[in-house]
Amino acid sequence: MIEVKNITKKFGNKKILKGLSFTAKKGEITCLIGINGAGKTTALNAIMNLTPLTSGEILIDGKKLTKESYQTIAFIPDTIAMLSQMTIRQAMHFMKDFYTTWNQERANELLNFFQLTETQKIATLSKGNTAKINLMLGLALDVDYLLMDEPFSGIDIFSREQITSVFTSHLIEDRGVLITTHEISDIEHLIDKVILIDDGIVVKDFNAEDMREQEEKSILDVMREVYVK
């Protein structure tokens, strides 16, 4: 389980996170939802220790973040981190050199699934295909937790469908996924847990199926209650 406990973050005088707390469990898809600037990406960066916190703590499986934590957790940013002149094959070699958890078999399977070939240069890929490669590079790591920052933004509907079907396959199963989005409709059926963030704090936190069952509300209904005032 990823436990985010009362974290705060200031950039200069501007408070971005104002005491954010939530958890994300293994075997579940947890979705951080919030409008632009709510603090979603900063929260993910904080979990990956990419940005120092002003206060609060983050635990992964009960332990504080260390260098070794990165063997159990992977971050898929919203833009690809590979050099554009690399081919897909070179990008995979790069990952293999840096991560002991790299699983080439799974990488090949994903390439196949997305119908991409490893001789293609990253610079020549369409936006949708770049997103798929970005996702592939993260998913091919044998880690327990995956953080994904806006995997659907700016991608055509068929690519989005292809990406969502990865979520229901063995490529994700049993792992913990923490995903940020402001586009809920594509993944509404997939999410276990929803965390609504506004202005650096959690405003609501619920299980999607329980919400439908007990209050007969869709995720969007709840979002409307929370965000539209």
């Binding site: 579940e28 079907s165 229901t168 396959s169 199963e173 997939l190 199926e209």
Partner: peptide, 14 residues
């Protein structure tokens, strides 16, 4: 349950 989740594009937990 995994096949069903995949066919219907739903969460395996569901």
């Amino acid at each position: 349950r995994r096949d069903l989740a995949n066919q219907l594009k739903i969460n395996p937990n569901t």
